[in-house]
Design a protein around this nucleic acid. Sequence first.
DNA 1: TATTGTTATACTCTATAACTATA
DNA 2: TATAGTTATAGAGTATAACAATA
Lengths: 148, 148
Amino acid sequence: MTTPPEPASPDIGHAAADLRMATFKLSRRLRAERAVDSMSDGQFAVLANLGVYGAHTLGELAARERVTAPSMNRTVNCLEESGYLARTPDGDDRRKVNITLTDAGRAVVEETRRRRDAWLERALADLTPEQRDLLAQAIPVLREVADR
Amino acid sequence: MTTPPEPASPDIGHAAADLRMATFKLSRRLRAERAVDSMSDGQFAVLANLGVYGAHTLGELAARERVTAPSMNRTVNCLEESGYLARTPDGDDRRKVNITLTDAGRAVVEETRRRRDAWLERALADLTPEQRDLLAQAIPVLREVADR
DNA sequence: TATTGTTATACTCTATAACTATA
DNA sequence: TATAGTTATAGAGTATAACAATA
């Protein structure tokens, strides 16, 4: 017999469904805000990764984005041609290639982040102070759920 | 020592950035939970739409998913071949085709929704009662932000 | 003539398999 | 022999343009 994990509150299922829908909707809305319309989500994700974590090899980028190495290679080629990132050979292991953001790439990352946060800030500003406080307190909880 | 929350400084920019990151991460994690691994996100979105809003014509589906009619036609062909939806000619306007979920399609929608909510419910169950209450209160606020 | 759905064709993004250079 | 990157090739998913059936 499968014992369910003690539903402390019967509303937990409701909360889960509501949270799922709100998360998908907000995510979709935020993704629409970007600095370069011609850039795909996958391409931007690579730039954002480089922006947050610094230099990566091709294999590391592929693993982080959960795509294959050839697929990532193509994305990187495209971004390199567009001038958003640069390849430099690794000094220690010459099989490896280090990939870094160019100034233009960093600008795209920062501008996109700025636009998304600006949209969110405007949305938060429309809330009541009580709602805003509540949400601010809940964000670390949300992060804990996402990090699970 | 863990610093207490700082209610005095409503750093709205910080909150926006945190919320953006948590939302993207949770959305990505939830999307990974699905009933049919071979089905793409786009295909599932069509089934989910039919599940929520009932029958649609091809054009209505295309508009709702913001893709072109030929593109949606191809997706619908694929889902029809797989047995997840069915086309039936419209009685009033014979140019139109009504598209409805089959039992198999409805099962995929419900099973995916069930898996995603089950994942979320387990994650929520790991929180403290205080965190869970806080998040439950914040979800309507989150929805208001997403609906903006 | 306008609208709905479809087919033809091309481009992008993804994947697997095979190849090159290096360890 | 194993590993990192790349190239070759193919399979989805998207788009625009053109066509067929119906209003």
